[in-house]
Design a protein around this nucleic acid. Sequence first.
DNA 1: ATGACGATTTACT
DNA 2: GTAAATCGTCATA
Length: 208
Amino acid sequence: MVNARLAHDDYARGAVALARDLLGRRLVRVLETGDRLCGIIVETEAYLGVRDRAAHSFGGRRTPRNESMYGPPGQAYVYFTYGMHHCMNVVCGRAGEPVAVLLRALEPTEGLERMRVNRASARRRSAIADTDLCSGPARLCQAIGLDRAFDGVDLTTDPRIFIEPSPTPAAARGRVRRSPRVGIGSSGEWSSKPLRFFFDSNAHVSGK
DNA sequence: ATGACGATTTACT
DNA sequence: GTAAATCGTCATA
């Protein structure tokens, strides 16, 4: 099967189920040149929608910035933050429910050299380690070249980006662990809910 | 018009 | 460990 990718129905599920299910699957970015920048998803976070105080859509908040959270399952929600970073989510709520899964880290598998170029800063002398290439929500976007131009794109049809359906072999993964989400400050009980999912013992997971 | 802040990362002490 | 970087977005006026 060529260009196999997850379809609409694969994304239309609860955020918790999808967050766990995306672990081990490959995110593929196809450049204009045809080059592929790929990585295995090793860390995600579920954002549950209007009742989730840590979500951008908490309380039904709907603005130009987070409009794509209200889109159909399989759509990307890419936002800009801290004046310099982009982060990517996969929308999974049905019929206008602003629910999504944040992609927090990848284990890069293709196009590492290009990722290194994309991630390089002016100062740095030495090459960036493989484990620092995509180990964070903003890092992975920078590595594979995602910005606001990708906000709202359809992952089930866009030739530039999609997620492959076949999971990588279990042997290449690890045990799935959960923890509270990162960087959401004090959002009451929502700060401590275990909505972050990641492979234990994977060096590409952020923050360790 | 203004001000505070952010689902982060990097560099520096 | 702490702080700077850096600016679009949103709430308030």
